[in-house]
């Protein structure tokens, strides 16, 4: 399933790396529900969020600057950082 990562940049502790924001990948596997680090970082009650492993092509991430366009990068992304989040949960 193809997904796009939210292109947002609020300040604070966020586990979605900047280089992945606004990029499109496919869900490689569903990892389960984990407490959101965005609340845990501030010792607040943290809701559980679905966590996905999303696979991106190097071509998608780096365009013409990609070292080998077919190589891939996997990262763990929480559902609220996936556009339209709930659809995949």
């Amino acid at each position: 399933m193809q997904v796009r990562i939210c292109d947002l940049s609020p300040p604070g502790h966020i586990r979605t790396p900047k280089y992945l924001r606004g990029k499109t990948g496919v869900i490689e596997r569903v990892l389960g529900r984990f407490q959101s680090p965005e609340q845990r970082a501030y010792a607040l009650p943290a809701p559980e969020k679905q966590l996905y492993r999303v696979r991106f092509s190097m071509a998608e991430l780096w365009g013409d600057g990609a070292e080998a366009p077919e190589d891939t990068l996997d990262a763990e992304i929480y559902e609220h950082w996936i556009e339209g989040g709930d659809h995949a949960a």
Partner: peptide
């Protein structure tokens, strides 16, 4: 080699 796909894994969260 070019014939091998490189898969990078960024440990961004709980795994």
């Amino acid at each position: 080699p070019d014939s091998v796909t490189c898969r990078v894994h960024d440990s961004t969260a709980d795994m």
